[in-house]
Measured scan of single mutants.
Amino acid sequence: MEVRTIKVFTTVDNINLHTQVVDMSMTYGQQFGPTYLDGADVTKIKPHNSHEGKTFYVLPNDDTLRVEAFEYYHTTDPSFLGRYMSALNHTKKWKYPQVNGLTSIKWADNNCYLATALLTLQQIELKFNPPALQDAYYRARAGEAANFCALILAYCNKTVGELGDVRETMSYLFQHANLDSCKRVLNVVCKTCGQQQTTLKGVEAVMYMGTLSYEQFKKGVQIPCTCGKQATKYLVQQESPFVMMSAPPAQYELKHGTFTCASEYTGNYQCGHYKHITSKETLYCIDGALLTKSSEYKGPITDVFYKENSYTTTIK
Rank of each mutant, 00 (worst) to 15 (best):
T103L: 03
Q30H: 13
F9C: 09
N111M: 04
Y284W: 13
L126F: 15
T278W: 05
G220H: 00
S25K: 15
M85I: 04
Y208K: 00
I286R: 06
L163H: 07
Y57N: 08
K275Q: 10
T35F: 04
T43I: 07
Y138P: 11
L179Y: 00
T198W: 10
Q197F: 09
Y269P: 15
A150W: 03
E264N: 03
K219Q: 11
T11I: 00
S310Q: 14
S246M: 02
E68D: 01
S79Q: 15
T10P: 02
H74I: 00
T199H: 08
C193W: 07
D23G: 11
S263R: 05
Q230T: 14
I124N: 05
L81Y: 10
T159Q: 12
V166F: 07
F305K: 01
N89Y: 12
T266Q: 10
T75H: 05
V243N: 00
Y36R: 03
C193E: 00
Y113Q: 03
T10W: 05
L173I: 12
I124E: 02
K158Q: 02
D13S: 08
L37T: 09
A177S: 08
Q197S: 11
A150H: 03
Y297K: 00
Y96V: 04
A145H: 00
T116F: 02
T35L: 10
Y311R: 08
Y57M: 11
K316Y: 15
K95F: 09
T226C: 09
I315L: 15
Y284K: 03
G272W: 00
F32D: 08
Q122D: 05
A136E: 12
Y214K: 03
I15W: 13
F80H: 02
T27Y: 06
K54P: 02
K255L: 12
V166G: 02
I223H: 10
A87T: 06
K229D: 15
Q230W: 13
N14S: 14
K307Y: 00
V22R: 03
A142Y: 07
S50K: 13
Y172C: 09
T199C: 10
Q195K: 12
I277H: 04
I15G: 07
K219H: 04
K255R: 10
G164V: 03
N16V: 14
F148D: 01
Y252V: 13
V188A: 05
G101C: 05
D77I: 04
Q31P: 08
V12E: 06
H18C: 06
C193V: 03
T313K: 15
A132F: 02
M170K: 04
T313P: 09
